Computed example of a mutant assay.
Amino acid sequence: MRKWLGGVVLLLALAGCSGQAEQQQPAATGQQSIVEDNATPAKGVASLPASTPTEIVIPKIGARSSLIPLGLNADQTIQVPPVDQPMQAGWYDKARTPGELGPAVILGHVDGKKKPGIFFRLKEMAVGDEVSVSRQDGTTAHFKVTHVEQIAKKEFPSEKVYGDTYGSELRLITCGGTFDHAAHSYKDNIIVYATLVPPTS
C-alpha cells in the first residue's frame, strides 16, 4: 500500500500569487492511505488510468492553460507556477493525475506582475460548473464542481484537500481574500472541489 497524500499533512497555503512566494513544508502524520497503487475503484465509481495532464479549460471563468508539473523544492516545500507567468497553471505531480482514483491538484495564481492570473475569477465558481482536463493519452477528464470555499491560509484544510478519496476528484487552488502587504501574500485560499463525470459510452 502506498502511503501518499492521505498519509501526509500538506500544509500548502498557496501564495506566490503576487509578490513573494510563501510555501509550507509537508509533515508526516503516520496515517494510512486508503488508495493503493493500481487500486480498483469501488463498484459504480468512475475513474481513468493514470495519464499526465496537458491542459485545463474552465468555461465559466474563461480560463484555459497548458499544465506544467509542480513538485517539491529542495526544502520540501511545494512548488507553485512562476509568478512572472501568472496565466500558467500547474499540476502537483506527487498527487494523482486528473481522472485517476484519488484527488488531483491544480494550482494557479490569482494575479502576478500586476496582471490577472489564470485563476483570477476562480472565486466565481459554483456547484455544477464544469472543468475539463486534457490528458497525454488523448482522453479528457470532465469534472463537475461540488463545493467552493474561501479559507484562511492558517486554517488550510490539508486532509480535506490532499487526503485520499474513494472517487476521482479534482482540487483547484489559488489565493484570495485581503492582500497582506507586509507578508507580500493574500491571507486566504480559494479552493474548488470537483468530482469526475463518468465517461459516456
Rank of each mutant, 00 (worst) to 15 (best):
4 W>V: 13
6 G>I: 12
7 G>N: 03
8 V>S: 01
10 L>W: 06
10 L>E: 14
11 L>R: 00
11 L>W: 01
12 L>A: 06
15 A>I: 09
15 A>Y: 02
16 G>F: 02
18 S>C: 07
18 S>E: 15
18 S>P: 00
18 S>I: 05
20 Q>L: 14
20 Q>D: 15
21 A>E: 14
22 E>C: 08
23 Q>W: 04
23 Q>L: 11
28 A>N: 09
28 A>S: 11
29 T>Y: 03
30 G>H: 03
30 G>E: 11
32 Q>M: 13
33 S>Q: 09
33 S>G: 14
33 S>V: 07
33 S>F: 05
34 I>V: 12
34 I>R: 06
34 I>H: 01
35 V>T: 12
36 E>T: 14
36 E>G: 07
37 D>W: 08
38 N>F: 12
38 N>T: 08
39 A>D: 13
44 G>D: 02
44 G>Q: 01
45 V>L: 05
45 V>P: 00
45 V>H: 00
46 A>I: 12
47 S>G: 04
48 L>N: 01
51 S>T: 02
51 S>N: 02
55 E>W: 02
56 I>G: 01
57 V>W: 01
60 K>C: 04
63 A>Q: 03
67 L>I: 04
70 L>F: 07
71 G>H: 06
71 G>T: 06
72 L>S: 07
73 N>D: 14
76 Q>P: 00
77 T>Q: 10
79 Q>Y: 04
80 V>P: 02
81 P>M: 09
85 Q>P: 01
86 P>D: 15
86 P>W: 10
87 M>V: 12
89 A>G: 05
90 G>V: 09
91 W>G: 12
92 Y>W: 13
94 K>R: 11
98 P>A: 07
98 P>K: 04
98 P>D: 10
99 G>Y: 12
100 E>L: 13
100 E>N: 13
102 G>P: 09
103 P>F: 03
104 A>C: 12
104 A>V: 14
106 I>H: 08
108 G>R: 03
113 K>C: 06
115 K>P: 02
117 G>D: 14
119 F>H: 04
121 R>H: 12
121 R>C: 04
124 E>P: 03
125 M>L: 15
128 G>P: 04
128 G>C: 05
130 E>T: 15
132 S>H: 08
132 S>L: 13
135 R>V: 07
138 G>K: 04
138 G>F: 05
141 A>M: 13
143 F>R: 03
143 F>T: 10
144 K>F: 10
144 K>M: 10
149 E>T: 15
149 E>W: 05
151 I>N: 06
153 K>Y: 06
153 K>T: 06
155 E>K: 11
156 F>S: 13
157 P>V: 04
159 E>A: 07
160 K>T: 11
160 K>E: 14
161 V>S: 02
163 G>M: 05
167 G>Q: 09
168 S>M: 05
168 S>K: 01
170 L>P: 00
173 I>L: 06
175 C>T: 05
175 C>G: 02
176 G>M: 02
176 G>I: 06
177 G>A: 04
177 G>D: 08
178 T>C: 01
180 D>R: 00
181 H>I: 14
181 H>Y: 08
181 H>D: 11
181 H>P: 00
182 A>Q: 13
184 H>V: 00
185 S>R: 01
185 S>N: 04
186 Y>K: 01
186 Y>R: 00
187 K>T: 14
189 N>I: 14
195 T>G: 00
195 T>E: 15
196 L>G: 02
201 S>A: 15
201 S>V: 12
